[in-house]
Simulated scan of single mutants.
Amino acid sequence: MRPVGAKVTGYATMAERWRAVLTTPLVAGAVPGRTFRYSSVGLMIVGMLVEKLTGQPLDGALRSGLTLPLGLRHTGFNPTTWLGAADRAKLLVATDARSSRGLLRGVVHDDVANRLGGVAGHAGIFSTAEEVAVIGQMLLDGGTYRGRRILAPSTVDRRLRNANAGLPAVDPERPGRTSDHGLGVALNQPWFMGRLAAPTTFGHTGFTGTSLLVDARRRTVLVLLTNRAHPNWSWANPDPVRVAVANTLA
């Protein structure tokens, strides 16, 4: 169990910043394997493992392993570097308007991911609701999309296998949260799934208000892209909106 985030300010080089991520200390008194607490550091390390196992940078591994096989044109890191001018104007909505970096448009909101070059395991991917739904449909269909296999069956099967069975969860903002997680996804979480929550419902959320929910019982994919940071942080909790949309769909 690690704290929620890593601190990479004050480091001049990218290597020093990544070293700071890897040496982030555990929460005082925490014992790995005894408690679940969501941490962006964990997903950052997963991203580093992807790079090590594939021999590619994370953005390249995403492209070759997922977005190209799925035919996704508007999903990836650092979109201002590869989207054409027309698509940039049409697709890149503003994120944080109160940032010390000024108005952000097509630039990752998370400061740590920004300092790591915009490519990290916990933040920085841009997409459209339609293309996120394609990823959800692929997961719903056991790792295939339009007859093409994208993920191995053994990988997809692990998304519904609770890796944290019996572990308590620590989340001061969401006291009702459980530790239930499969491979890369949260399982059966009413705090954002509402009445769609079930042991076979899985998904993932982002800090700014984004969420993907896949309900295997209803054969339904729900994507919600909201933004708690724009224009001025006048609202701070996207969960009631997530629940209301899920309940309406249910």
Rank of each mutant, 00 (worst) to 15 (best):
R63C: 02
R63I: 05
R63Q: 05
R63N: 02
S64G: 12
G65D: 07
G65N: 01
G65V: 12
G65M: 01
L66K: 10
L66R: 10
L66N: 07
T67S: 02
T67N: 04
L68V: 15
L68Q: 15
L68H: 13
L68P: 05
L68N: 14
L68E: 15
P69V: 06
P69H: 01
P69K: 00
L70D: 03
L70A: 02
L70Q: 04
L70I: 03
L70F: 07
L70Y: 09
G71L: 10
G71Y: 11
L72K: 06
L72T: 00
L72M: 05
L72Q: 05
R73D: 09
R73W: 04
R73P: 06
R73I: 04
R73Q: 13
H74Y: 00
H74F: 01
H74N: 07
T75W: 04
T75I: 08
T75P: 02
T75D: 04
G76F: 11
G76E: 03
G76N: 02
F77W: 08
F77L: 08
N78L: 00
N78S: 06
N78I: 03
P79I: 07
T80W: 10
T80C: 08
T81H: 14
T81S: 12
T81I: 11
W82K: 01
W82N: 11
L83F: 06
L83K: 04
L83H: 08
L83Q: 06
L83A: 03
G84P: 02
G84Q: 07
G84N: 09
A85G: 15
A86S: 13
D87L: 06
D87M: 03
D87N: 04
D87C: 08
R88I: 13
R88G: 07
R88N: 06
R88H: 11
A89T: 13
A89Y: 11
A89D: 03
A89R: 14
A89L: 07
K90A: 14
K90I: 14
K90C: 14
K90M: 15
K90P: 10
L91M: 12
L91H: 14
L91R: 14
L91V: 15
L91T: 12
L92H: 00
L92G: 07
V93R: 14
V93C: 09
V93A: 13
